[in-house]
Design a protein around this nucleic acid. Sequence first.
DNA 1: TTGTGGATCGCCT
DNA 2: GGCGATCCACAAG
Length: 208
Amino acid sequence: MTMPSPVAPEWFAHQDTVSMARGLLGQLLVHSTAEGWAAGMIVETEAYRGPLDQAAHSFGNRRTRRTEVMFGPPGHAYLYQIYGLYVCFDVVSGPVGAPEAVLVRAVAPVENLPLMARRRGVWAESDLASGPGKLTQALGITMAHNGLPLWEPPLYLAHYRDPWPAHAIAAGPRRNIPYAGEAQHYPWRFWIRGHAAVSRPSGPAAER
DNA sequence: TTGTGGATCGCCT
DNA sequence: GGCGATCCACAAG
């Protein structure tokens, strides 16, 4: 497989955050480094809607060094570190001034599985990138990528397959946001129904 | 300047 | 299912 072409910059601008969260399912996330290029198909996302969303880092338009890129134009990478150990990857959405983003929670390995396995230190395909901290590690994405545009190398999105039929996409509450009040119940987590690469937290009734 | 806690993961029982 | 790792961003003062 040769490296796929990136999406056009306009793709990010013509949809709201929830639409983008759905639209990212089935797209390829590609990262090229000196070690080679690797890619995964996005199978799970979560929408975070800034000002009105208590779960979002930018809730109430909170503008800090960390949230700054979310206030900029859509289609850029928002990266943050969590628990001092892991990095999470978001796609900035919404127009300039609207601090919204989509968290990519899981990808299915598509290209260069050996490289992904080496970075992760595990070899089971279903464990390579089935979580937000796992996929950044598998693809070699770091805090240094914060703010980069996602329509050109080294880190970009590419169309991979046609949009999924509605019945193939499931929606439900987002993971691990107990502090978010009412917002913890909003059905803004989306995933490809039954896909093996969707994250599997240990909680009860972990729906996949 | 300091204290607090997190959009997670993997190992332990 | 429970818990520790590990550190940066944030807010308080």
